[in-house]
Design a protein around this nucleic acid. Structure first.
Lengths: 265, 265
DNA sequence: GCTGAGCGTTCACTCAACTGAACGCTATCC
DNA sequence: GGATAGCGTTCAGTTGAGTGAACGCTCAGC
């Protein structure tokens, strides 16, 4: 956990929510998701979220009734309803369906491993994966989170942000998480790549998350006002990767990104 | 809940929740998940869930702040936070990781499509899928729900319940959902299979959910006191399926189920 | 241009949800 | 064995969240 946030102070001190119980319930869910074991007692949660035990107890009863959490003995865990809701979110995204359809019929991408991801703070979350290339079996799964600095799609996504936000997220000296010897180490190294990514219109990852694997990624132009920032990536083995192949992949990724961003086109 | 559900009367009339705002917020999420388009306006939600617009507005503001929903113009959709929470729920289950590891190295299963699911009322929810057999591309995805009567894993899971609960869920005359000509039609038909499933230790599905496809499934012995009921299934094409292959698959499924149920073994 | 239906928002009143101190209970410790 | 610390639950007072009527707004229809 590189992020310095004090464990789970999910409640804004000054701001007052129009439905505090809901805000606090969400904080409880966050605390459970963030905890190491995924199991917390009432007292743990009360302490973590910063609300009285009696109130926490009421929240937990309501959350349990809604199956958003589950009680096992004296411990609470996230509830299975969350799987349903998360799946409903994914299943409903037109983008995901369009993504599959395009990959199936693309000339180069149809034989590769392609993923669609969204930006979430300093991480990306993988939403769906098309596997046209069964030989490459990757560890990442739907719903997985990955620091933006470690993957092409992350770099492609933050390259679209304004510099002020980027500076705030990644000060020059910021230490980045490392997975391979080629992983970027500092905020400065990361930012050095962004202007190039902006110019050429795609991001490249050279064994920065997995040795032997390279990635290409583009961002999807935001559709509508507040849609999530989506990105597309394709993964290839470095051993067989060629620049010619790469430029064709980028071309198809950009075509897909364009059609995702402009549903009418 | 033999739900002939009136759209989304998520609020119990008599019962009073210890934190109504949370219960109602959960009902809002359900309504969004259940809606056809996944996009509802404030008025839609107010009508659907049965609470005043002003209160709904407050709930939506709080939910939006927590990123559990997202507002796009005048319409609301489920929020990306749900993907994270759902993934946190899944990621925390040791079972899923162990499931993948085992499938990778199994002699028969490693070449098939294997899934792990959990019981949720009269449905099963698919938690993870291993695809060792890329030729068989199925429509079901992680998080999908399926009535228990229509799949092998559903039958395997309810076979473990006590008769009283089963009778309550599936009275003899109960009409079951139908997907193919071979789908089971009534509670009586379903229950007739259960004792056999208990005796032989696995469940079989013969084109009951998809024509041309057969499934084998076993249930995982419940680990600990209140863990969710997990089941495993393997899917095969009827055209190429042989009983010899089937018995080997069952053997491996049972082995996996046993190791999932007894983490020390 | 006028009307009406439907949308989301605002606001003062009121009832019920939140609080925190006290309780009973179960380990754990010396 | 008695004392302590920590757990979750209970309960009455009070504050703050929920209510619904009224508002301003947009869009369709005639």
């Amino acid at each position: 956990m590189a992020d310095s946030h004090p464990p789970a102070s999910a409640e804004k001190p000054g701001a007052t929510s129009p439905a505090p119980a809901v805000t606090r319930a969400a904080a409880v869910l966050d605390a459970l998701a963030a905890s190491a074991t995924g199991r917390l007692t009432l007292s743990d949660l009360s302490r973590e979220v910063g609300i009285p035990k009696s109130s926490t107890s009421n929240l937990l009863l309501a959350l349990e009734e809604a199956r958003l959490i589950s009680r096992q003995g004296g411990e609470f865990t996230l509830g299975r309803k969350l799987v349903e809701l998360g799946a409903a979110y994914l299943g409903r995204m037109d983008e995901v369906q369009e993504f599959y359809r395009y990959c199936e019929q693309a000339s180069v991408l149809s034989r590769e491993t392609v993923r669609i991801a969204m930006l979430d703070g300093t991480n990306v979350i993988y939403l769906a994966r098309y596997e046209g290339h069964p030989a490459v079996r990757l560890t990442s799964n739907i719903g997985d989170k990955m620091p933006v600095s470690l993957c092409a799609v992350g770099k492609a996504l933050i390259a679209r942000l304004n510099w002020h936000d980027i500076e705030e997220m990644f000060p020059d000296g910021a230490e980045l998480p490392v997975l391979t010897p080629k992983s970027l180490r500092t905020g400065a190294e990361l930012k050095a790549q962004l202007s190039q990514i902006r110019e050429q219109g795609f991001a490249f990852e050279d064994e920065e998350s997995t040795t032997g694997v390279v990635c290409l990624a583009v961002s999807v132009p935001t559709r509508g006002a507040h849609g999530p920032s989506l990105g597309l990536s394709v993964t290839a083995l470095k051993a067989t990767y060629t620049p010619e192949q790469g430029s064709q992949m980028v071309k198809e990724l950009q075509e897909l990104a364009h059609s995702l961003g402009n549903p009418m086109g």
